[in-house]
Design a protein around this nucleic acid. Structure first.
Lengths: 346, 346
DNA sequence: CTGAAAGCGCTAACAA
DNA sequence: TTGTTAGCGCTTTCAG
């Protein structure tokens, strides 16, 4: 009995390809992997056999020897629903997916909601199933960076990591958009419109994106008035609360910079209810440029645009580069510029 | 030389665990896999060794012999941006992720945007890296179901598949929410409010969800008036166009059922601009219950709620059941009930 | 109950 | 250029 195509679940193996082509398994392997250094005649034979059998390499076997998975893990640690309620998440994934596909790598999505998930993910990473990790929504207590570090798994972070005392030797590579610069853009725009009493509604101050946006605002008000700052939470409700508060404290304000489009829309509702016209009485600028909000308020929302998909692509490219050239100097973090999109509200 | 912990990239192997515990590799393996039939004393030794070394099984090696990956693929074929612009996508993923995590399986996300992607995905599936497939946004031309079928890969579809002449022997298993019933609910509600000239704005009619929602509407108007039906596309703009059209054709209408919340919000804008009060003059019901829209229009939107996360969970459960018990009769498709959420607009 | 041994499908020296 | 030969780390008969 010829004993090819063994009990492999019906799927042809390299062995059976080699047999059909009349070559050794090694030669077949060479052809499958690019065919460098194989005589054309043989190569064709093998290629024919591959086609005829519909051979596809078994990656588990390949991984076992090459120690390369052609897969990267995307870890999203977001117990809060935020990641799921705005398009941020999906846009990131799309950017990552595109870049990964171009390099013929796969994306393994790891969502962490609780302690057990983190543990499971740790096991998974330790299992060696991915060649690198992309990390989002890093919280101070997140064990993943350390796990990855210990395992020698390259990783890149999305968004500036939060903890303040990040040891310098453990310089984390991250990609972020220019929150601070974007906030400055927004406030400068309001100023250029002649507004002088410019308030802001911030995001939750335990997130770096919120902090950076607030810092951008403060850059233009070195001697800032605390009454003009309300702490929000990126949601519509937060915008409503923040605006209500601001209006009570400073009824004379003539502009608001909200650190998210959702908050901006909430703020606009409050303003309208209070009889203030936007932008005549109070100009409003948001942040994010979420189309489903910004193109949609009345008036339409002037806001700061961030290139989220680009962020995903960039993170991926950074990670892949590191994988392919581990000895290269660690890439440095990247900040992607933001831009102002002027519409009706300011 | 003791020759344990070989050049395995530093990671401990079963071999090293066995050595440290003073047992054979086979016994160590047994313990790692549940420990059935191993004397307590030995088991403890092995467990200690595992803990001490921080041993984690190498899944590539395990897969190679067990032919099980503990991973399932999620294929999303959506060239259009829709999947990325509404929370549908993310909610599905969350449901899938939760269910998968509970069964200690991983999720491999495969996004297909063009022909090349489909090809790559086909190769990936053929490579045997996942044990089953979850499929979304199936288009008629989508090659994945056939690929999966050919490979003997179990799969479950999200949303009723589109093609009309689905051969009966090839009965596809899918999970959908009750679009038709939900639409009926909406229209019945409008009727119960005393409305008689009830219009509808549909989704794109090449999607089964749109068709089913329209059918639900028609169920209540067996002798329907074509003038009361406008074809939309699920977007805000589509709602605006549809409503404008309807108003021109039937200025006397007193209610609208929009097949998506986004369209409903567009419709409300048009109504307001036309001086019609909602709900006094025209009652509006949407579909989806996307919080960021429905809780947010003025007045808030009465709409049909679908349990998207539950859909994801159910699909996953169906698939896993099939994996664990391949001989069981093929599960049948499931339709998840929808419900009406009454708010301000109707 | 435990260990020895035979592979899973593939790549990578090393020889020829 | 090609084939031979070792494994990669793990599970799983099969003996004992």
């Amino acid at each position: 009995m010829t004993e090819s195509e063994t009990a492999t679940g019906g799927r042809p193996t390299l062995e059976s390809v080699a047999e059909l082509a009349g070559v050794s398994r090694a030669t077949a392997s060479r052809v499958v992997n690019g065919g460098a250094g194989v005589r054309a005649a043989l190569r064709e034979k093998v290629e024919r056999a591959v086609a005829e059998l519909g051979y596809v390499p078994n990656l588990a076997a390949r991984t076992l020897v090459t120690r390369r998975n052609r897969a990267i893990g995307v870890v999203v640690a977001e117990p809060e629903a935020r990641f799921f309620s705005d398009p941020f998440f999906a846009q990131h994934l799309r950017g990552i997916s595109r870049e990964l596909a171009a390099a013929d790598n796969q994306m393994v999505l790891l969502l962490a909601e609780d302690e057990r998930d983190h543990e499971r993910i740790g096991r998974y990473l330790a299992g060696g199933h991915v060649d690198g990790v992309l990390l989002f929504s890093l919280h101070r207590s997140d064990p993943t960076p350390e796990t990855a570090q210990r395992l020698g798994l390259p990783f890149v972070i999305g968004g500036r990591p939060g903890w303040p005392g990040a040891e310098s030797d453990r310089d984390l590579v991250y990609v972020d958009n220019d929150n601070r610069g974007g906030a400055r853009l927004a406030v400068q725009h309001l100023r250029s419109l002649g507004r002088t009493r410019i308030a802001t509604i911030t995001g939750p101050l335990d997130q770096t994106s919120s902090i950076d946006r607030l810092d951008g605002y403060r850059d233009l008000f070195p001697d800032g008035d605390g009454d003009l700052i309300a702490v929000g939470d990126f949601t519509v409700d937060g915008g409503i609360r923040g605006m209500t508060e601001l209006l009570a404290r400073r009824p004379d304000l003539d502009a608001v910079f909200a650190a998210s489009d959702a908050m901006a829309s909430g703020a606009m509702r409050v303003l309208r209810a209070a009889g203030r016209r936007v932008p005549e009485d109070v100009a409003v600028v948001g942040f994010d440029d979420v189309e489903s909000i910004a193109a949609w308020t009345e008036p339409t929302l002037t806001t700061v645009r961030q290139e989220i998909e680009e962020m995903g692509r960039l993170m991926t490219r950074l990670l892949l580069r590191r994988l392919n050239d581990p000895e290269a100097s660690a890439p440095s973090s990247v900040i992607i510029p933001t831009g102002l999109v002027v519409r009706g509200s300011a």
